[in-house]
Deep mutational scan, measured.
Amino acid sequence: TGEEYIAVGDFTAQQVGDLTFKKGEILLVIEKKPDGWWIAKDAKGNEGLVPRTYLEPYS
C-alpha cells in the first residue's frame, strides 16, 4: 500500500530507474526517501523514482 499523489507537472526520466509521468497523473508513493526522490508506481504498474517537488497529495 501507499499514498496517492497527483503530478503537478510533466517529468521525463533523466536516468535508468526514474519514472516518466504527465501532469494530472495519479501516482502511488511507496517509499519517501530523504533525498527528495520518492519511489512511486503509476496506473500501469510501472515503478520508479520521482521528484517529490512534482507531486501533491491527492484526496
Rank of each mutant, 00 (worst) to 15 (best):
57 P>A: 12
8 V>Y: 04
1 T>N: 09
6 I>W: 06
23 K>E: 11
20 T>L: 03
7 A>T: 11
40 A>S: 03
29 V>P: 01
19 L>K: 02
26 I>N: 02
34 P>V: 11
19 L>T: 01
3 E>P: 08
11 F>Y: 14
10 D>S: 15
26 I>C: 05
55 L>S: 00
44 K>S: 13
15 Q>G: 15
22 K>Q: 13
55 L>T: 01
21 F>Q: 00
37 W>E: 05
5 Y>M: 06
33 K>A: 08
22 K>G: 08
18 D>L: 15
12 T>S: 13
43 A>D: 15
30 I>Y: 09
13 A>K: 06
53 T>R: 11
38 W>C: 03
26 I>A: 03
26 I>F: 06
43 A>L: 09
48 G>W: 03
11 F>Q: 03
5 Y>D: 00
55 L>V: 07
18 D>N: 14
49 L>G: 08
43 A>I: 13
4 E>K: 15
7 A>F: 02
59 S>P: 10
20 T>N: 13
6 I>A: 05
40 A>P: 00
44 K>A: 14
1 T>A: 11
29 V>L: 05
58 Y>P: 04
12 T>I: 12
9 G>N: 15
49 L>I: 15
56 E>P: 01
58 Y>K: 13
5 Y>Q: 02
5 Y>E: 00
14 Q>A: 09
46 N>F: 14
29 V>D: 00
48 G>I: 02
32 K>R: 09
53 T>W: 15
41 K>T: 07
59 S>G: 11
54 Y>W: 09
36 G>Y: 06
18 D>C: 06
58 Y>T: 09
38 W>R: 01
6 I>R: 11
43 A>R: 13
50 V>W: 00
27 L>P: 00
59 S>K: 15
31 E>Y: 11
20 T>K: 05
59 S>M: 12
28 L>N: 10
12 T>C: 04
46 N>Y: 09
39 I>G: 03
15 Q>E: 12
46 N>G: 09
36 G>H: 06
11 F>W: 13
51 P>Y: 15
12 T>L: 09
35 D>K: 05
30 I>W: 05
32 K>C: 03
2 G>N: 13
38 W>K: 00
45 G>P: 00
39 I>K: 10
11 F>T: 02
11 F>A: 02
48 G>E: 01
29 V>G: 01
31 E>P: 01
35 D>G: 11
38 W>D: 02
7 A>E: 00
58 Y>D: 04
50 V>H: 00
36 G>Q: 05
37 W>M: 12
7 A>L: 02
57 P>M: 07
59 S>R: 10
42 D>A: 03
31 E>K: 12
11 F>L: 05
54 Y>S: 11
15 Q>H: 13
42 D>Y: 01
49 L>E: 05
58 Y>R: 15
49 L>M: 08
37 W>D: 04
44 K>T: 14
52 R>D: 11
13 A>Y: 03
50 V>D: 00
54 Y>D: 05
56 E>W: 08
46 N>C: 05
3 E>R: 11
7 A>Q: 01
55 L>H: 01
39 I>Q: 07
50 V>L: 03
37 W>L: 13
21 F>T: 03
51 P>K: 09
57 P>H: 08
54 Y>E: 09
35 D>C: 05
19 L>S: 01
45 G>A: 04
19 L>D: 00
56 E>D: 08
36 G>N: 07
40 A>W: 01
32 K>F: 09
58 Y>I: 12
13 A>T: 05
5 Y>P: 00
34 P>E: 15
41 K>P: 00
53 T>L: 10
56 E>C: 04
47 E>W: 14
40 A>H: 00
59 S>L: 12
49 L>P: 04
